[in-house]
Design a binder for these strands. Structure first.
Length: 509
RNA sequence: GGCGGGGUAGCUCAGUUGGUUAGAGCGCGGGACUCAUAAGCCCGAGGUCAGUGGUUCGAUCCCACUUCCCGCUACCA
């Protein structure tokens, strides 16, 4: 049986240009997608844009534009970002596409037919400027009019006809799901939040709006537009040609293995989405991972603070792979992380240039001078060689486990440890003093080349461009990369001609 | 307010199912080497593991309290 893996990013809301948070989600997802591919999986990696809703409609009106034209423009910036980030996504879905409309309306019809959706009235105190409803407790009387305590903006009583989804009905089933499937929501701290939220009681969810029109129409009542989250979440199935559940994409890839999302949209994915699917009697995704935010310094990036780090600017200045490497290694995955130029530069110089880049350089130059760029023959491993080479086979299962638990940091730590050890190995073996002992010299070089190969393979999901440059030394192209070859200590063919490379990472002064 | 998470070296973070000298990277000080992007390697300085009390032969790790930080507490997404 072939192994399949389906991973998704959130679909991004294109009310403004992409920022570091979008880049982060996408890069992390790309890391897993690429890893699974070199581990022999068929991978479907989906990203896209979520284009409906009042905000978009208003933003378009503000620019005197048709909403779709407006979305076309901004969606393209997200698509461009995918290219810039070197994402290996299989598809890019937009909720304004026909295939998605069909999919959402189908899901709606099922839910309505099953009696999971009913027509009623939504009412409450609404603040137009806050775009939010408030509870009785959250408003107060001021100068004779009702205002929201938090914002002080005036509220009015609004009643609107709306369809409701019977969310309350699924409370126990959801709790059961979280209980039986301990890793359905990760990290654990976020799971606790969701559980306590559901335990506190679920109310039925309003899933249609009459107050604006930019969205997918309720099939049985065109006065209503389907609630953006019911719309948006369904994208994960639309891309697999749902409602055609017989086609190979759907059959191979649904349910998703991993919905990777930011912590701010956890509830929609961990509560509403499984409830919709349960109600429609469809299989549930296997895992929801809510990652943290990328902060600038210690603060949330914001225009007023002037501390926004635009991913495109960073990439222009320092390159893509350094950014990818930084986000994956330096951010404690699951928690909020920091990025600053100083930290990025320090990371580039010490890890990429001085450590790994220089390792490649010293070994290759040495091979050039002493073996005319060929893989040595007559290799005879001693314990010193095997000790370090075997780290990869000895820790192989652990590495797989890290990936399956989204333990990116342990994975990265392993790589960094091997970089240090490889440099130390080369240092301790002092091949420059072994010019009279060819057998030993050859073995040291062979071992060093193997170490570079193994490290580069593990780095492929992290920094694909740079990894491929390194692997090209050994004529290993992208299609030939298989992660399990890191268990092989003699993958490199004796006598094979190898290719020189330029400086891999330039230091930033 | 309620529920949850957290406060570990100058900085960013690991870790301990309780057990002799608490870890890594970066930064800092010193040393030996020279294949290499003056990179790499070795050695070192630096922590009352937030505070107080308790359980225990023994707590950074368990319990209680105190204090500080953060998240969630539903229909903007």
């Amino acid at each position: 049986m072939s192994k399949n893996y389906y991973i998704t990013t959130p679909i991004y809301y294109p009310s403004a240009k992409p920022h570091m948070g979008h880049a982060y989600s996408s890069i992390v997802a790309d890391f897993f997608a690429r890893f699974k591919r070199i581990d022999g999986y068929n991978v479907f990696y989906l990203t896209g844009t979520d284009e409906h809703g009042l905000k978009i409609q208003k933003a378009a009106e503000g620019k005197n534009q048709d909403p779709l034209d407006f979305c076309n423009e901004i969606s393209k910036t997200f698509k461009d970002l995918s290219e810039t980030l070197n994402l290996s996504n299989t598809d890019f879905i937009r909720t304004t596409e026909k295939r998605h409309h069909k999919s959402v309306q189908n899901l709606w019809n099922i839910l309505e037919k099953k009696g999971e959706i009913y027509l009623s009235k939504y009412s409450g105190w609404y603040s137009i400027s806050d775009e939010a409803f408030y509870l009785e407790d959250d408003i107060e009387e001021k100068n004779g009019s009702k205002v929201a305590k938090l914002s002080g903006s005036s509220v009015e009583w609004i009643e609107e006809e709306s369809y409701f989804f019977k969310l309350s009905k699924w409370e126990d089933k959801l709790l059961e799901l979280y209980e039986n499937n301990k890793k359905f929501i990760l990290p654990k701290s976020r799971k606790n939040e969701v559980v306590s939220f559901v335990k506190s009681g679920l109310k039925d969810l309003s899933v249609s709006r009459k107050s604006f029109s930019w969205g997918i129409k309720v099939p049985t009542n065109n006065d209503h537009v389907i609630y953006v989250w019911l719309d948006a979440l369904t994208n994960y199935m639309s891309a697999l040609n749902y409602p055609d559940t017989k086609n190979s994409l759907y059959k191979n890839f649904w349910p998703a293995d991993l919905h990777l999302i930011g912590k701010d949209i956890l509830r929609f994915h961990a509560v509403y989405w499984p409830a919709f699917l349960l109600a429609a009697d469809l299989p549930l995704p296997k895992r929801i991972y809510g990652h943290g935010w990328i902060l600038s310094g210690d603060e949330k990036m914001s225009k007023s603070k002037g501390n926004i780090l635009d991913p495109l600017e960073i990439i222009n200045e320092y390159g893509l792979d350094p950014l990818r490497y930084y986000l994956l290694k330096e951010v404690s995955f699951g928690n909020d992380g920091n990025i600053s130029k100083d930290k990025l530069i320090s990371c580039i110089n010490s890890d990429l240039a001085n450590n790994f880049g220089n390792l490649c350089q010293r070994v290759l130059t040495f091979t050039e001078k002493n073996l005319s760029l060929t893989v040595p023959n007559k290799v005879n491993f001693l314990d010193d060689d095997l000790n370090i080479l075997n780290n990869f086979s000895n820790n192989y299962d652990k590495l797989m486990d890290y990936i399956d638990n989204q333990n990116i940091n342990s994975y990265m730590n392993f790589i960094v440890d091997q970089m240090f050890l490889a440099n130390k190995y080369f240092n301790d073996q002092e091949p420059w003093k072994k010019k009279n002992d060819f057998k030993r010299l050859n073995t040291i070089i062979y071992t060093s080349l193997e170490l570079i190969r193994k490290i580069a393979i593990l780095l492929y999901p992290v920094i694909p461009y740079s990894s491929l440059k390194v692997l090209n030394i050994f004529n290993i192209n992208e299609k030939k990369i298989k992660v399990d070859t890191i268990k092989n200590n003699q993958y490199l063919e004796n006598g094979m001609k190898i290719n020189k490379i330029n400086i891999l990472f330039n230091k930033v002064e």
